[in-house]
């Protein structure tokens, strides 16, 4: 037990302090290079440096490498950490390309599907899909397809909720802490500890990303967080519960896709919200603008960016609690599978 505690504390501290230490010089470098985008929700439209992805990636990768040596050398753990490092790095490259050059709507899903291949190649998975309360289903061939789908879905889901200051990092922080608790409840301690660097890297980045943001994660940051979260779901065999923990982001993607009815780069469509005279955010009157989570939150009354952030965090905490309840309920099998 002692080695687990040491590994957990060390990995959390490494992820937190690497991101905390790297972001200020990264902000300076990005500002010097004029890699900044307009914060459309800020009064006066301040230019905010982007992307913060390199700092987030460095924090997660450094902490996971330390875990490679600190955790017990079980095959599934070493394979899992290796898969997480490679897939997350690939997601970063994909996001970074999209940060520098706006690619088509299909680029990210297809490229992220490729980023999932190391998980299969390394065999860092069990081909059984666990359904809470009911048990597992053995789907050896179908599960490969699930892995290929899972990483693009997780990456794009987190990317699509990165709409305002602090939301993506704050949301992933809450979801990752929930997932870590879920894995502890299910006594999957090694993978629970592997989740902590994602949570602590998000927490450190949130310090600079929260309103008023000093840096944006960009696609590279959001995809790193989403892909890392997806790998943990697969390696930890908590695919369904991991999806429950990010239900608000899934709803956001679902609402968006069901209103737009096609895969499209979000920068190519009309904004779902607009500003009031007192600079609050309200739902747009455009009939063909997409429906999103933020648009529903501000449908009743205009809110400030900070208030919208807190509303989304409340939803994230709610779905995190549902995920933890599901984990506890998983011990109770109402229909044993054969």
């Amino acid at each position: 037990m002692q080695e687990f505690i040491i590994a957990a504390v060390a990995a959390s501290a490494i992820a937190f302090f690497v991101v905390l230490g790297l972001v200020p010089p990264l902000i300076k470098t990005l500002t010097r290079k004029n890699w900044a985008v307009k914060d459309v929700n800020r009064i006066g439209g301040a230019m905010v440096p982007r992307p913060g992805g390199p700092a987030i990636l460095a924090g997660i990768i450094t902490a996971e490498i330390s875990l490679y040596f600190l955790l017990p050398q079980e095959k599934i753990i070493t394979k899992g950490i290796t898969a997480l490092i490679i897939t997350t790095s690939a997601a970063f490259v994909i996001g970074f390309i999209d940060d520098r050059k706006v690619m088509s709507g299909w680029f990210k899903p297809l490229a992220l599907a490729g980023a999932a291949i190391p998980i299969i190649a390394l065999g860092a998975y069990e081909p059984n899909l666990a359904f809470p309360l009911f048990g597992e289903v053995k789907i050896p061939v179908l599960y490969l397809g699930l892995i290929i789908f899972m990483i693009p879905i997780m990456g794009n889901t987190i990317n699509s909720i990165d709409v305002m200051n602090g939301i993506a990092s704050g949301f992933v922080m809450i979801a990752s802490f929930s997932l870590a608790i879920v894995l502890f409840v299910m006594q999957n301690y090694s993978v629970a500890i592997m989740t902590l660097p994602i949570a602590f890297a998000s927490l450190a980045f949130f310090r600079y990303h929260r309103f008023p943001a000093k840096i944006f994660p960009g696609d590279s940051g959001a995809l790193v967080l989403g892909a890392a979260y997806g790998v943990i779901a697969i390696v930890g065999r908590v695919e369904v519960i991991a999806a429950i923990a990010i239900l608000p982001a899934i709803i956001n993607s679902f609402l968006f896709l069901s209103s737009v009815k096609r895969i499209v780069e979000h920068r190519q469509i009309k904004g779902p919200t607009m500003h009031t005279e007192d600079h609050k955010i309200t739902a747009t009157k455009e009939p063909d603008a997409p429906i999103t989570l933020v648009r529903l939150i501000v449908a009743a009354k205009p809110l400030t960016e900070k208030e919208i952030g807190f509303a989304i965090f409340r939803l994230a905490i709610f779905s995190g609690i549902l995920a933890i309840i599901t984990a506890f309920a998983s011990g109770v099998v109402v229909w044993p599978s054969s």
């Binding site: 608000p248 709803i251 939150i297 009743a300 599901t326």
Partner: peptide, 14 residues
Amino acid sequence: MAQLLIFTFIGIMW
């Protein structure tokens, strides 16, 4: 009210 509906929707999805 709108936010309560979103909580309900999350519960139904769960």
